[in-house]
Design a protein around this nucleic acid. Structure first.
Lengths: 228, 228
DNA sequence: TCGACGTAGATTGTATAAAATCCCTGGTGT
DNA sequence: ACACCAGGGATTTTATACAATCTACGTCGA
């Protein structure tokens, strides 16, 4: 675990429910809980050593984020998305994120660029295929840093959820098709364009970038699932 | 393939929590619970004659929809949106809804057009300024019927929430500025375009329509110079 | 007078236990 | 053999009770 990161809202374990939500979310995004896996309240409660009430609330929170699906009186399962639904996520991102970047780019500070550079640098160290989890975290943070000054809280919240879900579905494919290298190149170019004030070019590249990742994922899926 | 389940209208209150959520949501959208109003769990529980647990879950559900804001250990309040945030909602709608209409329009059935006609007719009967609540309900349903065949569940869910919130903030203004008449005209034209297969024209009109309502709302607020 | 501290009251968060619901299995009748 | 329905067991949902936390207010000291 990385030490002493700035206290953000997600680290405020102010309530047990939020702590449980964070841990379950991590496991889903990391793939420990796979699509369709049944999340039983009792099992999670005993494992974490807590009651089932905060577990319920955590599951509801995750349902709001789209990571799990709750069926009344039948429990919660990790959400299963068809390829069409995953494609929809990318299309929504391609629609929303350029808008956020356009509003946020000009307000990026020197500290923000510093953080973006750090992320790019951590990319290029040799952690690529080895630490897919860390890569996904960095990827999500990269996008969030870019949009943080957009002053569009609702859109930012929506995109945050989309990023998380896309990350979950992309990791498998990224480590196999060299998608990470391409993403790293495009990310670096993105930062360069923002820094030099070419906002609209950056937005266009961002749109292409997201659509490209989505298309790459779909191709990968179609190749490996011709029979179904 | 899941067996075709009877898609119930969700009017069956299958769980207490969902029933409470529905009632509290109605009160918020109707304006009985105004922005900033503090929703105390105990008060709601005793009023509905239930425990606090389902009330808590209802509040979390409403938070996910954006209608309330929950502060840890401090309770829930009806969400207060600045004019900028309301404008953001309309901008997001203007971005997302044409996309949904484009995907859904060609799959609209005769029964759908029948329902749309019913809605338009109920508009034009003299219930306009009198029953603002009913008008808002119809307005939301109108849009949802248009998009129901889009096969983009995530976008539809997002837009559903946006519609509800926009409705809440628009009602006050609609009944005073004649915005309803204009909306009715545009809605009728929208149906006509869809019916005659002019999908892209319909999408363009829809975008204009949403932006127009948003702009009208902003003008209304700037005239009255009300800051919260 | 003003501000800091601490206690009381109210409100939310969590644990435990009871009630309702669903799934599955096994029997029964046709 | 097939359809149907009753009952047991597992799981979720709700109720009740307790613990933790926050806000308000009053007291104390400079």
């Amino acid at each position: 675990m990385p030490p002493a990161r700035p206290a953000q809202k997600s680290l405020q374990h102010r309530t047990i429910a939020s702590a449980v939500a964070e841990e379950v979310r991590r496991r889903i995004v990391d793939g420990e809980f796979k699509s369709g896996f049944q999340l039983r309240q009792d099992a999670l409660a005993t494992e974490f050593g807590v009651s089932r009430i905060p577990v319920r609330e955590a599951l509801m929170q995750l349902e709001a984020e789209g990571l799990v699906k709750i069926l009344p009186h039948r429990g919660a399962i990790v959400s299963e998305l068809s390829m069409e639904e995953v494609q929809e996520l990318f299309e929504l991102r391609a629609l929303l994120e350029p808008r956020l970047l356009k509003a946020s780019a000009k307000h990026l500070t020197e500290a923000d660029y510093e953080r973006l550079s750090q992320i790019l640098q951590e990319y290029s160290t040799e952690l690529r295929a080895k630490h897919v989890r860390r890569w996904g975290e960095l990827n999500t943070e990269f996008h969030n840093v870019l949009y943080q000054h957009a002053r569009q809280p609702r859109a930012q919240a929506i995109v945050g959820g989309l990023l998380q879900e896309c990350d979950r579905h992309t990791r498998l494919q990224l480590s196999l098709t060299g998608g990470m290298e391409r993403a790293e190149v495009e990310h670096a170019e993105l930062v360069r364009l923002c820094k030099s004030g070419k906002v609209s070019a950056a937005c266009a590249l961002l749109k292409t970038h997201i659509e490209g990742v989505g298309k790459s994922l779909r191709n990968y899926f179609e190749e490996h699932n011709k029979t179904t």
